[in-house]
């Protein structure tokens, strides 16, 4: 089922959580709503679910306006940030809940409910924990139970609010992979909220970047990473070097006092050389080297006193034999220029 949001605005008192947001999610996609806290991503998710009401705008499922439908009528699967498992029910009862509360004429038989729950328990690999209470589960297990509970009612849309936010790094990695697999199997239109850019880029096949209640960019992960539409997206999706500069006759000049334009370069798109190889370059002196990890991180100071971060592979570093306090040339391989007013918006 496809989801559409048209001109959705939501205010909490003086605070504008969503400012005239338009968004279209095609059927079957796995989409990430990515943004810092306060960007409005959770509010948008809750409005789509029917847990919150927009001040204006419409929500459509498969082209049908469902703005006035209650959360119950929308039949979405919602996974809450802190899972919201029913603490007085066992894992089994939690998953069966959505089926058991159906009106008698639509309620599956006892055996059918049991079979369905067993099937889901198998899917989340917790068959032997069916009789446990939520408080007896680990965070990752609770997360999977919450997901199974949402899937039990066979929703046409799955909405997840910071699904891995409360888990530690290792469990998060595993669950991410597992959710990706799950989506490949059942192809349910899924929308998840996250503030972790790595998570969004790795898991989603489409990323929606939000800031201050507005959508900054929508696109495939490589698209938003490699071709950020706005300075905010560039900044939010990874480390960045920022220079004041100007564009003149198709050439970019970087200098401290030149204004009018801002130049963004990712650290791994900067190269270091001992000799200027004829192309664009500037001079800098190496201040600090951190060679731990797959990438070597070099900190250098430019002639005009600005700090530059450069990342390079280990083998490149070992061929260069860089030393601290050495003077070198920094060569940008790719850069992105934004007008200052764009960047300061």
């Amino acid at each position: 089922m496809s989801i559409e949001a048209l001109g959705v605005t939501k205010k909490f008192g003086q605070f504008t959580a969503l400012d005239n947001v338009d968004l279209e999610i095609p059927s079957g996609e796995l989409v990430a709503l990515l943004g810092p806290s306060g960007s409005g991503k959770t509010t948008l998710l809750r409005i789509i679910a029917g847990l919150e009401f927009a001040d204006s705008g419409t929500i459509r499922f498969d082209g049908r306006d469902i703005s006035d439908r209650t959360v119950r009528e929308r039949q979405v699967g919602f996974v809450f940030q802190h899972y919201a498992l029913f603490r007085h029910m066992t894992v089994f009862e939690n998953i069966a809940f959505g089926l058991r509360v159906r009106p008698r004429e639509h309620r599956p038989s006892r055996e059918k409910i049991r079979a369905k729950v067993q099937e889901l328990l198998k899917l989340i690999q917790l068959e032997n924990l069916a009789q446990r209470y939520p408080s007896q589960l680990s965070g990752g297990q609770r997360q999977r139970v919450a997901l199974a509970r949402a899937l039990a009612v066979e929703p046409s849309v799955l909405l997840l609010d910071e699904p891995f936010g409360a888990l530690d790094a290792k469990v998060r990695q595993e669950l991410r992979r597992w959710l990706r697999q799950l989506h490949d199997e059942i192809h349910i239109t899924s929308l998840f909220v996250t503030h972790d850019q790595e998570e969004a880029l790795e898991l989603a096949n489409r990323v929606v970047v939000m800031d201050h209640g507005r959508i900054e960019q929508v696109g495939a992960p490589d698209e938003v990473y490699n071709h950020p539409a706005t300075p905010f997206v560039y900044n939010f999706l990874g480390n960045v070097n920022l220079f004041h500069g100007r564009v003149d006759g198709g050439k970019t000049y970087i200098h401290e006092r030149e204004t009018g334009h801002l130049v963004y370069v990712r650290p791994h798109l900067l190269d270091i050389a001992r000799l200027p190889n004829g192309g664009d370059h500037f001079r800098a002196r190496i201040k600090h080297i951190n060679a731990a990890g797959p990438l070597v991180k070099v900190e250098a100071v430019t002639d005009w006193g600005a700090l530059v971060h450069v990342e390079m592979p280990q083998d490149r570093f070992s061929t260069l034999h860089l030393l601290k306090d050495e003077s070198v040339f920094v060569i940008p391989r790719d850069l992105k220029v934004f007008k200052v007013h764009e960047a300061e918006r």
Binding site: A49, G50, L51, T70, V71, R72, Q75, V76, G77, F78, F80, A84, L85, F86, R87, F97, G98, V101, R102, R149, A150, A152, V153
Partner: peptide, 10 residues
């Protein structure tokens, strides 16, 4: 938990 119950159709 109430919100969760409502999304599940209760």
């Amino acid at each position: 938990e109430e919100e969760a119950a409502l999304t599940l159709g209760a």
